[in-house]
Amino acid sequence: MTVIWTQDGIVENDPWAQPGSDSGSKLLPLAEALEHARDNAAFGVVLQPADDVRALAPILDRVAIIALTFPAFSDGRAFSQAMLLRERLGYQGEMRAVGTVLLDQVPLMLRTGFDSFEVAHAPTIKRLAEKRLPGIDLHYQPAADETHAGPGYSWRRTAMLNG
């Protein structure tokens, strides 16, 4: 079973059903999204690692959700795609990690601007539901997440702890 998780917990009745599920995907590939942008309805996009996220720039204000794909844990292109979307293009909407989403990568994904996660591995879902993320709250570099300026040097950051 696949679930959608955000830092608020597991999402029930997610409107953007994932590809391959019974209800069918509402997320459009890049080419279709660029086409669809002529209509008015809000829509979601699913990008592959080789897609150039900058192609979305002209239609970004119409996009409700962007899913970035991790075809394997070792394929880290979506980390850079996420950084570009958040930092370069100023995308503010939901950004979802789909594909191979490992527990230990979730903290890094949060840092690069992901805010929802499609997860299938049962022990991972359990850990996420319990909010037991295996992350480190001290960072040696700025990224796309909201952080405090770290002590000492300009490149350091510390996590915003909620609650």
């Binding site: 844990f73 980390f79 990568q105 890094l108 994904m109 840092r111 690069t112 040696y140 570099q141 490149w155």
Partner: peptide, 11 residues
């Protein structure tokens, strides 16, 4: 320091 657990460049 900068490269330690870099979120974008670990994979």
């Amino acid at each position: 320091q900068w490269s330690s657990v870099h979120p974008e460049f670990s994979f």
